[in-house]
Design a protein around this nucleic acid. Structure first.
Lengths: 256, 256
DNA sequence: GGCTCGCGTCCCGCTGACCGGTACGGTGAA
DNA sequence: TTCACCGTACCGGTCAGCGGGACGCGAGCC
């Protein structure tokens, strides 16, 4: 199963991004053989293209294999939407963290997934599976649910009619239940998650609205089941999200 | 003047990254014509390759032109060194900000430039020219100087023997003076900047050391000339940098 | 030692992906 | 209207890309 079916393998470019996307957030360095396995490209081809990627400074070579280079990091940070969002959001995330000292996330929706744009946490933060630049399914996260609630009806329906992967015993896999949660989320302006993506974690999320009722992004607070009562954080999350909203909606060009 | 001479323009890949790198941190969206101007590639070629980049989800099309896509952001965030560094550093930067409420930076050296990996600031932060993912010359920033001080002697010499660009009236352009500052920085473990990169700004920076005397990264605090006395922040910056150092030096594979 | 297996590298002839000069339609300013 | 500039589309020549296959090497095993 190729990781990203959309890439065109008949072009160098397609092969190149296939190789780049073979790296996951958890991989530090991948040897040639592993790249061959994941991409399912001929060994000679991977060898050559990876070499080209190195000369173009998108990959680094180490004696253990290849890894995504700093140049790629730079490039990625220039992606206008995510970067602007992050820059504008930082002070708000900041405040939120300072007030609560719980893990704070900023995320956007990309297809059926949430992509985390920023994450702030302390030294002994609840160990959540999320990472900046990483993905999680929309249906099992607070951020995902609030983003979905404030999306066009058609994308909401599209997602509800596709199978909902089970992550924990608490993951909501019944479309009907999820749909009802989305409805209340749309009314109340917040969404919750209770151990649906990872056991022991709970979240609250609020939407960052552009013009109209569509969410451009969302902010969430995460904490461990014991001390952390999500309801107690509704107000500060909402405040942060609204503050950011009013800043963002002034700027055009964040449309996505 | 091509922005990155190292790219091989005789290959599709080279053209592709040339197009991608034509975007600066300040560009939101570039029309085809502007890309043609910057890359100095034939219009038909840019049109085609940019189209390929769009189908490969590295670029987005808008009615105003092209822009770097969210997919590229994701990819960039997977660059192992920068991402690990950022994740490990976040709590320390966090603490530092909370204690001082001044703008905090994390940066690494790449050639003659500092690349900012993370930046934390409040709502009304001193408006510095730095941006996450952006670059600044090493010789005129506190981060750059401390990184240079804790580098191999040869790269230090290499830089000292190349022309030092003037950014402000206070920028140090005399190699001798810079060299002396580097020496004291190496002794004291901190470096200062006083309006050398931008008028009205001052910084202190401390190194994040790996094994040995080489710096993997550096942390700095920035503030406006008036209220901000860099000397007052030597201790907290140093503490943050050392805390991160001891965490980082345990992990191999951050070598660069 | 000899054998094998998996790795990274290199070779080399075929071919279709890439190239870019050129032309076209639209849009806004002069 | 004319002109300038934009984005788009066409199309035949050719060379960059392709990948099967061979090679050298080191680690593990017999």
């Amino acid at each position: 199963m190729p990781p990203h079916p959309s890439a065109d393998l008949d072009t160098v470019l397609g092969k190149a991004v296939t190789i780049l996307r073979a790296f996951t957030v958890d991989d530090q360095v991948l040897p040639l053989a592993e790249l061959v396995r994941r991409t399912e490209l001929p060994k000679a081809t991977v060898h050559r293209v990876a070499g080209d990627l190195v000369t173009n400074r998108l990959l680094d070579r180490t004696d253990l294999g290849y890894r995504l280079s700093g140049g790629l990091f730079e490039l990625g940070m220039r992606a206008s939407v995510e970067r602007s969002l992050m820059e504008l959001a930082m002070p708000f995330l900041q405040d939120l963290y300072e007030r609560t000292h719980e893990t704070v996330h900023l995320g956007v929706r990309e297809g059926h997934d949430v992509v985390y744009v920023a994450k702030i946490g302390g030294h002994r933060q609840a160990k959540s599976p999320s990472r900046p630049g990483g993905r999680m399914p929309v249906h099992c996260t607070a951020i995902g649910k609030i983003l979905l609630a404030f999306s066009d009806a058609e994308v909401q329906q599209e997602l509800l009619s596709s199978p909902l992967e089970r992550r924990t015993p608490h993951t909501i896999v019944a479309p009907g239940l999820l749909e009802r949660q989305l409805a209340t989320a749309l009314e109340t302006g917040v969404a919750f998650e209770r151990e649906e993506s990872a056991v022991g974690l709970q979240c609250v999320a609020a939407p960052v609205l552009g013009d109209g009722e569509r969410a451009l992004a969302a902010i969430s607070i995460t904490g461990p089941v014991g001390r952390f009562k999500p309801e107690a954080f509704v107000t500060p999350v909402r405040a942060a999200a609204q503050g950011l909203s009013s800043l963002v909606s002034r700027r055009r060009s964040l449309s996505r």
